[in-house]
Every structure is written in structure tokens, then in C-alpha cells.
Computed example of a mutant assay.
Amino acid sequence: MPLDVHAAKVLEMIRLSGRPPYETLAPAEARQFSRNARAVLAPEPPEMGAVRDIKIGEGGAIPARLYRPLGSAPNAALPALIYFHGGGWVIGDLDTHDVVCRQIANGSGAAVVSVDYRLAPEHKFPAAVEDAIAATAWIAAHGATLGIDTARLAVGGDSAGGNLAAVVALDARDRNGPKLIQQVLVYPATESTMSHPSHERFAEGLLLTRPTMKWFLGHYLRGAEDLADWRVSPLRATSLADLPPALVLTAGYDPLCDEGEDYAARLAAAGVPVTRVRVEGMIHGFLTMGKLIPATNEAVAMIAAALKIAFAR
């Protein structure tokens, strides 16, 4: 299938804007470009029942943002999605993914807790993993103070955030952590050796290129030895059995497409209920581009619908 015409227009806009490739920038500069893109690519933030910034984790060390859907009763204990934003573990924050979290909350009728985990290179692996695990455990233990039903928790994220969500689910299984009833993995990074064929098919010319992916990993990892750690590459986990049901969404024109689909196939082979969806013609990062790409809003609605079903089980 050809590249989606709306995605092609986004790529052309980026080219005409003169935005330098991330791998030519310092991390702080790249973060600012990422924040600036929000005004161009994201829809207007929808009205919510409530939105507030909070501190979670031991000692309130981890910033987060709590969303309650429009029309929800203020005192109702809602199911919740714990969300980890994308950005290669280097860029992205609560604001870059604010609209997506709002849309998912309103569409699913659930709360969303967006977690602002520590970023590299200031905080290299495993800092982001530690924050994601700690945030999930803290929310499960303190849900009552947040108006959350801790018997109905899900984890999710896009790209690097999808990686973190997958790792949190594995860690919760292995260390008797919070019981999770769903994982939502949107074009997740699951094998960081960049060895799947899609890394060659889409090495250049798209939003996420091979040099950009190397730049992200170079900032995130302490050294090449980290590549073998399943917390970097969850495809390397010994077993994917007994994990929560998963929605795995990939993009047809994405270097991470094959590793995401490989992870979904391994989940299914291990007996985990999996819904696999490839958004044909779409580029990496499209989840935050709903102002210009109609397929984005369809994907977000699909995520919200899957969560609504999972939380009703």
C-alpha cells in the first residue's frame, strides 16, 4: 500500500520547515522541536471532566498527569490506563502527548495517568524502566486517593513508551506486581539491535530514520551490553506467557513495524490474547498527529474501544 497522502504531507511540511534531523541536535534542542510540533500536528485539547498534574512514586519523585473523562462522576472509582509517552527515551513529555491522553480517557470512559519518566541522556537506562515500574506500583497501591479502581488497571504507550509498557507487564508478572488486565502497545520498540528487515526498508526519508534511531539508543543505553537486556529488548524475554491481553498497533511505513509485529506474534504463540492491527500507509509517530492525519483519530478511537471492552470484562 502506498504512503498515506496525509502522512506524506506531514513529511513534506517537516522538510519545508527546515527542521534539522534529531541526530544533529543536542537533546534539549530536540525536545523543544518536539514540543513545538504539538501546535502544528495535534488537535485542540478536548474538554475533560478533570485534569491535574500530580506527583507519584515514593517521595513524589515522578511527575504525572491525571485525566478523568468528561461526564464522569467526581467521586467515582474509574478504571485507569497508565500511559508512557514516546520519544526514544530522550524526548517527549506530558504536553507532547496531552491530547492523545485526553482522547483516550474520553473515548474509553476511563482515567488516564500519563507518567513523566526520566529521560536520557541525563538519566540513562534503566532509569526510565525503574520509573515506569515504580509509577505503576504506586498507582496500584494508592488508587483510592486518585479515584482509580485498582482492580482495573492497564498499561500502554507508543514507541519508547510501548517498550516501557511491555516491560512493566513482564516485570509485574515476574515479581508479583500489580495485576494488569490489558496492555496497549503502539508501534513499540521491542528489539533494539535494529536487526528486523523494516529497519532496512525504511532506513531513510521518513520521520524515524536509521540514524535517528541510533541517536536515541546512543543516548539511552549505557553501552552495547544493554542491548541484550530484555528490559531494553522485550523480545528477548525468556517467555511471554501469562501476560495481560494486548492490543499491538503498528504502522506500515515504520522501521519498528516488524519488531512490533514479531512481539505480537510471540505473545499469541505464548497463549496471550492479542489483537494485531497494522495501520497501512502510516508513519512512525502518527498517534500525535490527529490535526492533519485522519487515521490518527481512527487509531485513538480503536484504542479507547479496546480499553472499554477490557475494563468491562
Rank of each mutant, 00 (worst) to 15 (best):
G177T: 07
Y187W: 08
H199D: 01
L164F: 03
N176Y: 00
Q183W: 06
H196D: 09
G162Y: 08
D171P: 00
P178Q: 05
K179S: 15
G177Q: 05
V167E: 01
D171Q: 12
G161D: 05
R173F: 05
P178A: 14
G162R: 07
Q183D: 11
I181E: 04
V186C: 10
L185T: 09
K179R: 14
V167W: 04
A189L: 10
K179I: 07
S198T: 14
R175E: 01
V168M: 00
L185D: 09
A166R: 08
H196C: 06
L164D: 02
E204F: 15
G161T: 11
I181R: 14
A172K: 03
G205M: 13
R201G: 01
G162F: 07
Q182C: 06
G205Q: 12
I181K: 04
R173T: 07
R175C: 01
Q183S: 13
A172M: 15
D174F: 01
L164T: 09
P188L: 04
K179D: 07
Y187C: 12
N163S: 12
V167M: 08
L164V: 05
G177S: 09
P197T: 07
S195L: 07
K179M: 08
G161I: 08
G205I: 12
L170C: 11
H199A: 04
T193P: 01
E200T: 14
H199Y: 15
A166S: 12
G161Y: 01
I181C: 11
P188E: 00
S198Y: 03
G161W: 00
A189I: 11
A203M: 13
L164M: 05
D174P: 02
L185A: 12
R173P: 10
T193C: 01
A172E: 01
G177I: 06
R201W: 13
V186P: 00
E200V: 10
G162S: 12
V186T: 13
V167I: 11
L185Q: 06
P178M: 07
P178L: 11
P197Q: 12
I181P: 01
R201D: 14
L180D: 03
F202C: 10
F202R: 14
P197S: 06
L180N: 09
L185I: 09
R173C: 05
K179N: 06
Y187P: 02
D174W: 02
